[in-house]
Design a protein around this nucleic acid. Sequence first.
DNA 1: TTGTATGCGTTATCAG
DNA 2: CTGATAACGCATACAA
Lengths: 290, 290
Amino acid sequence: MGYTPNVLGRNLRIKSTRKILVLIPTLSNQFYSSVIRGMENVARKEGYQVLISATYSQKETEKELIAMLYNRSVDGIILLSSQLSSKELTEIARVKPLVLCCEYTDGALLPAVTIDNYQAGFQAVEYLIQLGHQKIALISNNTVFSGRQRSQGYRDALKTYHCRYMPSYCVETEYTFQAGVSATKKLMKLPDPPTAIFAISDVLAAGVIKELYAQGKCPGKDVDVFGFDNISLAKMITPSLSTVSQPRRQMGEQAMKLLLQKIEDIHTENPLVILPHQLIFRQSTHDRKI
Amino acid sequence: MGYTPNVLGRNLRIKSTRKILVLIPTLSNQFYSSVIRGMENVARKEGYQVLISATYSQKETEKELIAMLYNRSVDGIILLSSQLSSKELTEIARVKPLVLCCEYTDGALLPAVTIDNYQAGFQAVEYLIQLGHQKIALISNNTVFSGRQRSQGYRDALKTYHCRYMPSYCVETEYTFQAGVSATKKLMKLPDPPTAIFAISDVLAAGVIKELYAQGKCPGKDVDVFGFDNISLAKMITPSLSTVSQPRRQMGEQAMKLLLQKIEDIHTENPLVILPHQLIFRQSTHDRKI
DNA sequence: TTGTATGCGTTATCAG
DNA sequence: CTGATAACGCATACAA
């Protein structure tokens, strides 16, 4: 009869909001869309609503949003990336339901779900080597843990297969398309330019391919390109991108399950869940076996 | 001294949450990222927090989220697309702060901000005609008002310039990359295939370009392609996309301003704000003047 | 079964 | 200017 209960009064009484907040670094990276779908799947089943807010990788913004845990605006928070130190994260997670998803912060004591970024980076470079490449460049971002792990995988693959590690082949930059373009410009200007490029994200790799075209080179033929993330963009560009696929939906589902456990009992364990990744081979790497 | 006020008690007393909810059809479309940034800009200045939730174009989900207006979880809602009828929207907006942004629902009485989609569609096709094209195809989606307007612009441009309207050149489909691929397959199979394709979204246009490549055709040379939205993808692909740029950030800012006015006084007017768009010419259309 | 009173944490009001 | 108290809307415990 037109009566709508006031959730504020209810929540005040019940000390629960049935709302989960997901903090995303930016809405412009479609990588997270499937992850969040996974989260919504399991949240919905348990009667929780998922709200999203962007931090733009600003520590202050992140802190303001995490405050919603303390002022009881939401029951739990999942971070898809964080600017907080492992100490700060541990501190919060000790008393409030907080989970890390996709991006791990080394040493932080809270539930987290991720892939083996080191192994994935290793395998991507290993594959390029097996295609016959010796001169493999890396475009990376070392401000995040996963980026450092992927880079380490690159270096160890080179070492394992006795390829020479060339510092000039390693460009450290931010996670944007334009950064991929610029890095490629720099790499191709070298006296002995690389014949393959491993970019630690598809958006970077898209920049690589764009710039190779601009230089009249044919990506996937003259220069092989390997990306990371397997976002939809990877299939949209020509040549389509060989890349590392993360089980995005499962990562989201798993993270939400861990969070709901924490909501039920804050003293539950803090597992680090490693989900399997997968290499995807497309046109940007020319497989000479075919 | 470690005291954090309980926002629930406060809000219950104060009858306000200082939170705005933005309903987005899907997180996978990066079109909305800048729009939301615009919203956040003005919301932050007024001390409002912006929360985002995805509806996946499901009417039920949308209704559940709009319920947050009635149960006082948020102070206002901005819809970036809606499955509700103009009657339903009018009904809600009569008593609660609700604003439409980017996507207009014909006849709905609530504040809305959009561009002149008809005019933009007309101009895009006009440009293709001026490049010398006579056989121009359309890939559209008529389930949304903006799509119908863009299509109408296409038809009127053909008529104005005495080009023949060919129903076989018009493919109606959904808003996805794959749909762009399929539509292009169909179009290029015609006995007399088009020499230019106007797709009413960049994601569709990216599918067009992908498929043209797959058929050994050169987009921007053999077949010109015009997109819509000017999302970052438009610059990432090769050839880069000619497209219609919407003033996304300003649209978000304007929509938030309208919403805050409604929050202050629900009886304020319901303006329809039309912001200027802009044609962007890139490599996917071969300008013969150059 | 139905009804009434109390407390959740805050703000606002009013008396001292 | 300070301190006690009522009210916001709901859920719960207890009484009828």
